[in-house]
Amino acid sequence: MNDTHVKSNISAAVELFQLIMYTPTFTLGLLFNVMALSFLFFKVKKLSESTVYMIALIFLDTLLLFTLPFKIISYHLQDNWNLGSLFCSTLESLYFVNMYGSILISLCICVDRYIVIQHPFTAPTLRSTKKAAMVCAVICLGTSAGTISTFQLHGEGHNISSCFHNFSKSTWENTGLLSVLEITFFGNMAAMTFCTVQTIRSLRKHRRPDNPQTDTTRAEKIVVTNLVAFLVCFTPYHVAYFVYFLVKNNIIHTSSQQVLRDIVQVTLCWANLNCCLDGVCYYFVLKESLEDPLQNSEKNILCLPDRTSSISTGSSHQIAQIN
């Protein structure tokens, strides 16, 4: 979330930072997401649980990326948005709703990986492509309900002149909205951290003593990288948003409100890097999996084994195929 009615509340330094960050985020993120999606549609012959989650994640990330050029335009126009209130609210919905949809799908991928590694014998009953599709559908429908809130960010019936910022006072007094967003993120963060730690512990048990640099080591690095990227991208914004909410509601008193406002803008911009990192990560994982003759089968695609490989976790190579 951004700010209230203050003329030209975006500092020049923040505008420049957003331009520098959003340009490569948009171009590279769109490029690698489209390339990863192309691999999925043209190279993967059979859908698995992992491919279903990845298609949903790439779809949500791509929709968010399409809003970034308009976000740059909105900050340049400041209080002179002339593309229509309905169009602005639609863009804001795509931006904020899809960001949290991506967070929830990322959790699903992490939990799915955890189930395969930690509970290989019950995984076939817990996992299926149909169940994965249903989970994605529920997440998309659930997050879409957030559109009700995003269409009221500037106040009911308000003629929007500043898109993506200058939100109404009622928005900043909405404790329910704050609670939902913060609980969604920090709850996901706790669950993903737990699943990642447990997955790493299981992977290390399958290391070969005579050759520790096995595929499990590579798998561990990718699992940790995924979690670190998630935390680095999203944590600063949610902490800054929470602190700024307290300041706006006079729960915390400070004379540095402009600084906090800029920090919220910068951390929100930083959070969007996750869309780019998702595409880059999964594009190269897909490319490597398809080119590696030892991993050249549908069941090893997209960082997760299918139900058959999940049962046979006896070798380090099979365990490493989650990545």
Rank of each mutant, 00 (worst) to 15 (best):
N2M: 09
H5D: 09
K7T: 15
S8V: 06
I10R: 02
V14L: 14
V14P: 03
E15K: 13
E15T: 10
L16D: 13
Y22W: 14
T27R: 00
L28D: 05
F32E: 03
N33E: 02
V34R: 04
F39W: 11
L40F: 02
L40E: 07
S48T: 15
A56V: 11
F59V: 07
L63N: 09
L63P: 02
F66N: 05
T67L: 07
L68I: 14
I72A: 07
I72T: 10
S74Q: 08
H76I: 11
L77F: 12
L77T: 14
N80Q: 14
N80I: 09
N82C: 10
G84H: 07
G84S: 08
E92V: 15
S93Q: 10
M99H: 09
I103H: 06
I103E: 07
L104P: 02
I105W: 07
C110P: 02
V111K: 04
R113S: 03
R113A: 00
R113K: 09
Q118E: 11
Q118A: 13
T122C: 03
T122Y: 02
A123H: 06
S128V: 10
A133D: 01
M134F: 11
V135N: 01
A137M: 09
A137T: 07
L141N: 03
G146P: 07
T147K: 07
T147H: 00
S149M: 10
S149W: 14
L153E: 08
L153F: 14
H154K: 12
G155W: 01
E156S: 14
H158I: 03
H158C: 01
S161M: 08
K169R: 11
T171R: 01
T171K: 00
E182C: 05
E182Y: 00
F185T: 01
F186T: 04
N188P: 01
M189K: 00
F194W: 12
T199F: 06
S202M: 13
R204Y: 11
R204W: 12
Q213L: 03
T214Q: 12
T214F: 03
D215V: 07
T217F: 00
T217E: 06
E220F: 03
E220I: 12
V224Y: 05
T225A: 15
V228L: 15
A229T: 11
F234R: 05
V239R: 10
F242H: 11
L246A: 14
K248G: 08
I251Q: 15
I252S: 05
I252L: 15
S256M: 08
Q258T: 10
V259W: 13
I263D: 10
C269P: 00
C269L: 07
W270S: 00
A271K: 10
A271N: 00
L277A: 09
Y282N: 14
F284G: 11
L286Y: 06
K287M: 03
L290M: 06
E291K: 14
D292I: 06
L294S: 13
L294C: 05
K299L: 00
L302W: 06
P305Q: 01
R307M: 04
S310F: 03
G314T: 04
Q318M: 06
Q321H: 09
